[in-house]
Nucleic acid binder design. Sequence first.
DNA 1: CTGGATGTATACCGGTCTGTCTACTTTGGT
DNA 2: ACCAAAGTAGACAGACCGGTATACATCCAG
Lengths: 196, 196
Amino acid sequence: MSQASNRLEKRDQLISTAFSLFYRYGIHAVGINQVIDAAGVAKRTLYHHFESKEALIAATLAYRDQQFRTWLEARIEQAPPGEGALLAVFDALNDWFNERDEAIMPFHGCFFINTCAEYTDPQNVHHKQCQAHKRLVGEMLLRHAYQVNAERADELSQELVFLKEGAIVQAHVMAAPQAALVAKGMAKRLLQSYAT
Amino acid sequence: MSQASNRLEKRDQLISTAFSLFYRYGIHAVGINQVIDAAGVAKRTLYHHFESKEALIAATLAYRDQQFRTWLEARIEQAPPGEGALLAVFDALNDWFNERDEAIMPFHGCFFINTCAEYTDPQNVHHKQCQAHKRLVGEMLLRHAYQVNAERADELSQELVFLKEGAIVQAHVMAAPQAALVAKGMAKRLLQSYAT
DNA sequence: CTGGATGTATACCGGTCTGTCTACTTTGGT
DNA sequence: ACCAAAGTAGACAGACCGGTATACATCCAG
């Protein structure tokens, strides 16, 4: 057993526990005491690793950003490049919504949209961090859109983002896990109109 | 001066004040004391009209549901029926995002999406109330979609809802008020493919 | 003209919030 | 073997939470 890392893992333990609680119950609704109890860690330890709750929130957003983009990138790479890759996004969403992919379970909406809902001011630190995440995901789609239609890649990827966000909201708010399939159908027709 | 209604208006005053605060800062972030201070009302008065904060939240959601649907309905009715009405939705969104319509200012995202983000469990009372609102808005679109393509009205309205939700999220999270125009462009092409 | 509904102001209750502090233990690299 | 880093448990501070209680004022309908 790696005792050495056991110590250093406390930080990650706190982050992943905080993420699970924030994601499920919302950030304001979860107190620091809940986090440390669930993580099985002393309060002092939390404040050893993080200056404040704000810092923990920032770390949680960074953690999820990494996890989510790594997951989506992997799902896309398994598909054929170009159109296949872009449609694979919606298959990935489908598995996410239906909690069929362990790597990204469970589903309680988009953590970043949810966080922006709690910090509605676009100038807010956390809101900005969510924007940065969405920008990176958008750029990911853009790279693949480039394979489909280089001249209109910006347009195409932007429109696909709309379908993606719409699907996530619909799946969460309406508890409609089939939303990804509707969005995929729309995406297919969109791709046809962009085919070169 | 109508002193009689002055009394009865306190309830509405509380609701509209609570809405403004909840909408801007999130529900969990706003305390009951903030609400009564902003409304200029005694705490006893709040608890005379509402059993609890939960009850105030419910009333706030009902108030916004009414306000929003009345506003959107009016905006749609001003446009020619059928396609015009459906496209008018996106013009309305455009004015909302850009805070050009006093009747619906300001813009901090969709109150119902935001509330679902704070109460992620679809079984939660408030989450369900948000679903009900979205269902009513969806039915509103459905009625107009029926004028465009009676056989495929369900499909069409559902797809327009995706564009609408996508636009709202994009406008809020990315602070991109032009999102409504992108969505309108997509909607136009969608309507072409549904034209009878 | 009186009584009940609605309002005011303010103190209070028990609990929880973030964050600090004390005092002690475990661990691992040098 | 030793010391700094990282950990533990838990009390504490001061603010704020939702909600109740007390005591009194205003208003209007029967």
